[in-house]
Amino acid sequence: MTVHLEIKNLRKDYKRGETVFSAVKDVNLEVNGGDFISVVGHSGSGKSTLLNLIAGLLLPTSGEILLDGESAIISSDDKASRLRNTVIGHIPQGQSLLSNLTVFDNVRLPFYLSEREGDPSAQVHELLTGLGIGSLAGSYPNSLSGGEARRVAIARALINKPAILLADEPTSDLDAENTDEIMLLFKRIAKEGTAVIMVTHDQRTLNAVDRSYTMEDGVLSNHSV
């Protein structure tokens, strides 16, 4: 399943007292299945807001988000959540695993957040083995290293076979070796047809991506790799 994501003149304004400021200013972006792109910017530049708009967690002030030509801006939270759960895999920033669930349960959790038939167990084991952490299925998040936890989060994002993978600072707090491994994984995932969109301020990742963009004060601009 490949996808064509098109973002047109996307804008998100916030009000702080009497002042209106734009976290995302008229962003235009096109991503296809198989692309691996990064959005680089400092903290507060608007890159996470952009990711949340794509994920449907926020509604834009104006502009369009088209998925295969159809609007992905959905006012119904139920429908937007369903779209996020089926089309988008999300790797939130930092430690995002649920500490009271095992690695196995963390990974299969998104499968049960929408109505689905079947048992994802075999797929969970396949994903964990593919990411080199098959032996950790019964472990709890507090016993994992930073790199292992990030791989579990990636496995969890992939469990519903998403067309788009959104990664928010996936290499923060990781050493160079783990960062390289995560980048190789994303490349592999993109090669299999998934559109990978990563927001980061980690300059070490720039060589791994197909295209890189810079975000500053809500404005997205091309950045040659």
Partner: peptide
Amino acid sequence: KKEFATLRALGASGKK
């Protein structure tokens, strides 16, 4: 907050 944010990101609706 962090746990709920994660669940939302994974596709849990507000109702859920």
